[in-house]
Amino acid sequence: MSRTAGYNNPLHGLGALLHRELAQWYRDFVVLFISLIQPVIWLGLFGKAFDLSKLFTTNANLPPAYQQLAQQTMLNIFGTTSYYAFFAAGMLSFIAITTAVFGSMSIVWDRRLGFLERILSTPVSRGVIIMTKVFSATIRTLIQVAVILIFAVALGFPTTYLTPLRILGTFAAVALLSMSLASLLILLGIRTTNYQRPMVVANLITLPLMFTSNAMYPIKLMPGWLQIVAKVNPVTYTTDIVRILLLNVNNGTGNLFIDFTILLGFAIVASAIGIVTSWRYLTM
């Protein structure tokens, strides 16, 4: 009997599994539409409704000198006169956080539906199964990021620094964040048939991750202990990179290289933990 030797490539199956994963998303119009429109709605609501710069500038009777002072304060605190622009940059990290959990949910469903049992009996590497989930979350995040950037510009995001290279750097930073979070969240899904488990944990950490970072509020206005937490939060570094690249605003460590190194470190450690653990514990 002839048998094909296609196993030599240790990543075989990755493309096909990834395609299956993404097809569940893009082939369902409602799911696709809502997941693309959701961050846009949040961006519009939060970014425009909580325009902090208005706190200083709504009173038209104020003398011009005072208005100038207000602008200066905004610049000092947020690095830009538009809180909307400041917030929009933070939104990109928010997308990565909310989408990262889908990889974990999907592995739980694969177990419930029997699909996991089937692929575990094939020569596909366990690592590839996990990578599929992580990459699909990352790809979804990046597509959402692209959409939100387009809408952000339509709603008044400054276009001065939107060069291809800077946009590419932004995507890279968000991808690293997404991979870190998805790799860690996947650990919640590899041994359970309860899809609520990854969900409740994701709900639990989403807002704390956002509020203990510079995504919505500048670090330097935070109490000391919170500043420490913010310094170990990968969202801080992601947001920092995005603001430096897209707004040319500097209110974090101020160094692209350091930011990227730390973020890359996070991603490597997290995916190593995710992949090695799943290798060991991903069974029926």
């Binding site: 296609g6 196993y7 030599n8 299956r20 029997g114 020569p123």
Partner: peptide, 23 residues
Amino acid sequence: EYTSDEDLTGFENMMLMASLYGI
């Protein structure tokens, strides 16, 4: 349990399996 992917066609399911074996 049934393990094929309901969202894919029969043929796509076959091809998915094939790729898991590196064929």
